[in-house]
Computed example of a mutant assay.
Amino acid sequence: MLSPMEEDPAMWDHYLDGHREHEGLARALDESGAPDGRIWNGHAWQEWDSWGETGLVTFPLRAGGPAALRAECQCLWHGPARTLDADPSVTAAAVKKLDWEFHIAAATVAVPPRDFEEEMNDLLSRLYALVQDRPLAALGALRELEGKIGPQRSVAVGCARRQGESWQKVADALGVTRQSAWEKYQFAGTGADVDAAYARTTPPTP
């Protein structure tokens, strides 16, 4: 069995900022809908009984031929079962386009750029060091940071809503329920509250 990290036409790769973030494939299912230890590699069935990178999921080979396919990602997400077409490549193309690509769009829409994430990690490391050396100064820095983050969050929600994003997508990005997001930010997209939030979020000087 090939490692998922090896180049293989069966794999669907997704890159973000030049780094591979997700990897998918078309998993065989038996007549009961149970996952099988085979995948469709573009031209034939291939044994692939586990995700080598995670070690968390294994699939035994099952008697009989596959009856359906589902899209599957190394992050352990999987899509719905889709009955096999006469040509499995047709079904594999469908689960990739309709299910896996939808999963990738949802999984990456709220992921910050890698360089921004690195800068945030650097700031957190500096805050941690400041906490150890000068805890009162760290509290002052945190107070100032929190005072800027709240308005920025309101602005971000307002921008997302103005661009047509749904409350569910906003809630997913915030890590809260749709109801909680709406209750807290229902003004977003219109009104003086958003204008006031903008007024409090002057960009920092370089």
Rank of each mutant, 00 (worst) to 15 (best):
residue 38 R to S: 03
residue 201 T to V: 09
residue 101 E to V: 08
residue 157 V to P: 01
residue 194 V to F: 11
residue 6 E to F: 11
residue 121 N to M: 15
residue 25 L to W: 14
residue 30 D to P: 00
residue 135 P to L: 01
residue 60 P to I: 01
residue 109 V to D: 08
residue 115 D to N: 09
residue 98 L to H: 15
residue 166 S to H: 06
residue 6 E to Y: 12
residue 145 L to K: 05
residue 108 T to L: 08
residue 85 D to L: 07
residue 194 V to K: 08
residue 205 T to Y: 11
residue 23 E to C: 14
residue 146 E to H: 13
residue 47 E to G: 12
residue 85 D to T: 02
residue 79 G to K: 02
residue 184 K to T: 15
residue 73 C to W: 06
residue 104 I to N: 00
residue 200 R to G: 00
residue 56 L to M: 12
residue 106 A to T: 14
residue 22 H to E: 11
residue 142 L to F: 00
residue 50 S to V: 03
residue 62 R to T: 02
residue 18 G to H: 00
residue 192 A to I: 11
residue 21 E to N: 04
residue 101 E to N: 09
residue 30 D to T: 01
residue 87 D to S: 09
residue 3 S to Q: 09
residue 80 P to K: 11
residue 69 L to A: 06
residue 11 M to A: 15
residue 190 T to D: 12
residue 121 N to E: 14
residue 12 W to C: 01
residue 191 G to V: 08
residue 112 P to C: 03
residue 63 A to W: 10
residue 174 L to P: 04
residue 5 M to I: 15
residue 16 L to F: 10
residue 84 L to K: 07
residue 113 P to Y: 12
residue 21 E to A: 10
residue 190 T to L: 08
residue 12 W to I: 04
residue 99 D to R: 08
residue 104 I to S: 00
residue 16 L to W: 09
residue 106 A to P: 03
residue 33 G to F: 05
residue 9 P to Y: 01
residue 167 W to C: 00
residue 111 V to T: 11
residue 120 M to Q: 09
residue 181 A to T: 05
residue 74 Q to N: 14
residue 85 D to M: 08
residue 47 E to I: 14
residue 128 Y to K: 14
residue 11 M to F: 15
residue 42 G to T: 03
residue 180 S to E: 15
residue 131 V to M: 07
residue 125 S to L: 08
residue 23 E to N: 10
residue 112 P to G: 03
residue 139 L to T: 10
residue 105 A to Q: 11
residue 58 T to L: 08
residue 97 K to L: 13
residue 177 T to Q: 06
residue 83 T to H: 12
residue 167 W to H: 00
residue 118 E to Y: 09
residue 89 S to W: 07
residue 88 P to H: 04
residue 19 H to I: 15
residue 109 V to L: 10
residue 171 A to C: 02
residue 61 L to D: 03
residue 185 Y to R: 01
residue 124 L to A: 15
residue 20 R to M: 09
residue 52 G to P: 08
residue 50 S to I: 02
residue 131 V to N: 07
residue 29 L to R: 06
residue 173 A to E: 07
residue 28 A to R: 10
residue 10 A to S: 10
residue 137 A to V: 05
residue 116 F to I: 10
residue 31 E to D: 12
residue 200 R to P: 00
residue 200 R to S: 03
residue 188 A to H: 01
residue 117 E to D: 12
residue 89 S to K: 05
residue 136 L to T: 11
residue 3 S to H: 13
residue 14 H to S: 06
residue 97 K to A: 15
residue 139 L to N: 09
residue 204 P to T: 11
residue 187 F to T: 03
residue 25 L to P: 03
residue 66 P to S: 05
residue 64 G to T: 04
residue 33 G to N: 01
residue 191 G to C: 05
residue 27 R to I: 02
residue 34 A to C: 04
residue 36 D to I: 13
residue 29 L to F: 04
residue 4 P to F: 15
residue 36 D to Q: 13
residue 1 M to L: 07
residue 47 E to F: 10
residue 119 E to A: 11
residue 198 Y to I: 06
residue 110 A to L: 02
residue 15 Y to N: 13
residue 26 A to S: 13
